[in-house]
Design a protein around this nucleic acid. Structure first.
Length: 292
DNA sequence: GGTGCGATCGCCT
DNA sequence: GGCGATCGCACCG
């Protein structure tokens, strides 16, 4: 009897989920560079969610084939920072609107020896507690009294990945509204690539709030991470490694290549032409090497 | 395109 | 009491 109800409920949710995905294929507003988004959405609606009935709750029985689950976050800090590139951050607002943006720039903060990390030397405070929680835990902290930054904890004691910039994929106008709300009236309209090209800008554009601190990116209902079915992995040759931003005062740790971004992507917040050049010369010398 | 500077307040020492 | 994992704007070339 109870089983019959659960199966019936699963079926209803299955149908609703499928219809919702199809509805997404008609974005309400799209920019000129919205073509990749349409391909992403198309491939999503082509994917049939598989219903697993071995859990009693119909909610948890629907495993999302696109959303990244707990195991993804169980990587070393540097690996996770690179793995984030190309993935899609989704923010579901209270009115149901889903904002989507691709991660194009991250930084690794290792904890321990890493003097630039809030958790340097294993220092644990009320503010940075999320850095010590399980991989996938969101760490949101206020900076300069007026902004927020969003990190995700990784493997490693006190280690976390800072999200530095995103490429807006859908909900551009909502993002523009959220950003404009914090700017002077009469300021010029932001271009798409300016909506999320900085760690605090992306928090504004996606309405990431302080109360998201310590929540789990793998299971939260208001924010999550998806893989892009069109681009499973980003080739290493497209990832630039460069020094981090805003940590100049931390000696040798200021110059370590712990920032990662997609080469040539227009939404990256700060380019490092030297790192890009070195990378290019490195790859050309690599190609001249013979395999022994 | 790049650089310099002020805003503003929670957090930690 | 001092400082920041930033941003926007003015100004320069």
């Amino acid at each position: 009897m109870v089983w019959g109800k659960n199966i019936a409920l699963c079926f209803v949710i299955f149908i609703m989920t499928t219809r919702k995905r199809k509805n997404l294929s008609l974005p309400q507003s799209e920019s000129a560079d919205g073509e990749p988004l349409k391909r992403l959405i198309q491939s999503q609606s082509d994917t049939n969610p598989v219903g697993h009935h071995h859990h009693l709750s119909p909610y948890f029985s629907m495993k999302d084939p696109v959303r990244l689950s707990d195991s993804f976050f169980h990587q070393s800090c540097v690996d996770l920072a690179k793995a984030f590139l190309g993935k899609v951050l989704v923010r579901k607002l209270t009115d149901g609107t889903e904002l989507r943006a691709r991660v194009v720039e991250t930084e690794a903060y290792l904890g321990g020896e890493d003097k630039a990390s809030h958790s340097a030397g294993g220092k644990r405070t009320e503010r940075n507690t999320a850095m010590f929680m399980k991989p996938g835990t969101i760490y949101v902290y206020p900076i300069y009294g007026i902004y927020l930054c969003m990190n995700i904890s990784s493997q490693g004691e006190g280690a976390a990945v800072l999200l530095r910039s995103l490429e807006p994929l859908s909900g551009h106008d909502v993002m523009r509204g959220l950003r404009a709300a914090k700017r002077k009236a009469g300021a010029k309209t932001l271009k798409d690539k300016e909506l999320c090209n900085g760690p605090s800008k992306l928090c504004q554009a996606l309405d990431v709030q302080r109360c998201f601190d310590r929540r789990d990116l793998a299971t939260d209902t208001e924010v999550w991470l998806e893989k892009d079915p069109e681009r499973e992995t980003v080739p290493a040759g497209e990832v630039v490694s460069a020094h981090r931003i805003g940590v100049e005062s931390h000696g040798e740790w200021a110059t370590k290549p712990l920032r990662f971004y997609l080469r040539g992507h227009p939404c990256v917040s700060v380019l490092n032409r030297d790192a890009e050049r070195q990378m290019h010369s490195q790859s050309s010398t690599d190609s001249q090497k013979t395999v022994s």
